[in-house]
Computed example of a mutant assay.
Amino acid sequence: MDHSLLVIMLLGIVEGLTEFIPVSSTGHLLLAGELLGFNSASSATFDIVIQLGAILAVVVLYARRFTAVATGLVRRDPQAIRFGRNVVLGFLPALVIGALAYSSIKAMMQTPMVVAVALVVGGIAILVIERRTRAVAVTSVEDMPFRTALGVGIVQCLSMIPGVSRSGATIMGALSLGVDRRTAAEYSFFLAIPVMLAATAKELWETRNALGDTDWTGIAIGFVVSFVVAMLVIRAFLAIVSRHGFAPFAWYRIVVGTIAILWLALR
């Protein structure tokens, strides 16, 4: 990648801002890359690896909870076991489908129009789901029934279409299955860790022969920027969701997606 420091930092900011809110970080990175001319063969590796910076923000912010879960698993505490079980169940469908559909997913990631359309459709879906949300039955990840966790994991697979949003699919799936807003958002954060680690490992393995040409300095800078920005965004996101729900993000998706469709069609 031969790109300026400013472009790399801008993309890191985009990743940190969008990874955990239901607007599709991958979609935004693809559209931003198209706008900024960041569309080389190695840009997909950059986009995926810098997402780990945002994932690290979750690890840091929830370090005490993860430590408590790890300790509880050693002691065979039922709450910790249910937490671990639900994260695994939510991750498994993405692991299986991601491995089977890697080539198709990769192809769609090179098609900005798919992203633009998915942003609009996803925004409409969020508005519909918010208005039809069933009664809250689950208020913590530990209390989530295994069928609910697995169901959310299956819905999460829709996010393999660029522009759908992993967090958006996960959160809306959880809301549809009776999980409260804050727990749905936090569950999405926790599922991001194994999902993105697996996606990064898969990408690095598939592109292993070209890694010598990868701009690791640029990736490191994007990683750090996305980490710092995500640290600030996560708590703000939870506050907004608790007060206003997900409708503001839905309307944002619709507006940005519509603008992107017009720009891509007319350029």
Rank of each mutant, 00 (worst) to 15 (best):
I193D: 08
L204D: 07
V195Y: 05
E206C: 00
Q79T: 15
P145E: 06
M108I: 10
M9N: 08
E142N: 15
I50H: 01
T139W: 06
A247Y: 10
L150M: 11
H244F: 15
A99L: 15
R182H: 12
A70M: 14
A99Y: 10
G90M: 07
D180A: 07
G72T: 07
L92N: 08
T183N: 05
Q51L: 02
L30R: 13
N39A: 14
P145V: 11
F91A: 13
A44I: 14
I48N: 01
R253Q: 00
G168A: 13
I8R: 13
I219C: 04
K202R: 14
A135S: 14
A169V: 04
T214H: 09
F20D: 13
S42P: 07
I240K: 02
I234H: 04
S43A: 15
V74Y: 12
G16C: 07
M231L: 15
A260Y: 10
H3T: 12
L175E: 03
R76D: 03
Q51W: 04
A184H: 06
W251V: 13
F46H: 06
V69F: 06
I105N: 09
A107W: 09
S167E: 10
P22Q: 12
M172T: 09
G163K: 02
I48S: 04
F20H: 11
R166T: 04
V60F: 06
T133M: 11
R131I: 05
I105P: 05
T45P: 03
V136A: 07
I21R: 06
L119C: 07
D2R: 08
L17M: 10
A198F: 07
L266T: 14
D77I: 10
A230Q: 05
A70C: 11
G37C: 03
E130A: 12
L36N: 00
V138H: 05
L30C: 02
V60R: 02
R243P: 02
V256P: 03
R208S: 14
Q110M: 12
A201Y: 08
L11I: 10
L150C: 10
G245Q: 07
I13R: 07
A94Q: 01
L73R: 02
I50F: 00
F246W: 03
L100R: 00
F83L: 09
A250D: 03
I259M: 08
P93N: 11
R132D: 02
N86D: 11
I261T: 00
L266E: 10
A185L: 10
I50R: 03
A198S: 12
G33Y: 07
I126W: 01
L158V: 10
L158H: 02
F20K: 13
G33M: 10
D213S: 12
V58Y: 07
V120I: 08
A192F: 06
V74F: 15
V141M: 12
P112Q: 14
V164M: 11
V229W: 04
S4A: 05
F91C: 10
L31M: 11
F46A: 05
A41Q: 13
A125P: 00
A70W: 12
S165Q: 06
I13G: 02
M144R: 13
S25A: 08
L150N: 05
A57E: 09
A236K: 11
S165H: 01
V87R: 08
S242V: 06
T67Y: 15
G163C: 03
S25I: 00
V155N: 02
G37S: 04
G16S: 08
W251A: 04
